[in-house]
């Protein structure tokens, strides 16, 4: 049976700079992770925030590995990266 779609959100926070989308999406492409949606904005507090919704059902890495490796990609960019299953946003922001 085909695995259910499992949406995971990748949030990247830091100072705006070139190459953020390229670095993160390049990594995801190499690991067969499909990007479903992508958004980015400069927040009122001055931080650049990029958020990606990805479907990891065909991923060649586990969540744990993806989390660790994306953290490393984030470090190289000088940005914080957070990976969270969509359920937490559904619970916190939707009634």
């Amino acid at each position: 049976m085909e695995k259910q779609k499992e949406l995971v959100f990748i949030t990247v926070i830091g100072q705006d700079r070139k190459g953020v989308v390229a670095s993160i999406s390049g990594y995801l492409y190499r690991k067969d992770v499909n990007i479903v949606d992508i958004n980015q904005r400069i927040m009122t507090d001055g931080y650049f925030v990029m958020s990606m919704a990805v479907d990891a059902k065909a991923a060649t890495v586990s969540m744990t590995e993806m989390s660790r490796e994306l953290d490393q990609v984030g470090r190289e960019l000088g940005m914080q990266v957070q990976i969270q299953h969509e359920n937490v946003f559904r619970m916190m922001h939707r009634i």
């Binding site: 949406l7 959100f9 949030t11 926070i13 949606d37 992508i38 958004n39 980015q40 904005r41 927040m43 931080y47 925030v49 958020s51 919704a53 914080q80 957070q82 969270q84 969509e86 937490v88 946003f89 559904r90 916190m92 922001h93």
Partner: peptide, 17 residues
């Protein structure tokens, strides 16, 4: 996207900062 960037940022900030 199902959630606004603001919503995702709010949750991520709660944890990270």
């Amino acid at each position: 996207m199902a959630f606004d960037v603001e919503e995702i940022y709010e949750t991520a900030s709660m944890i990270l900062r």
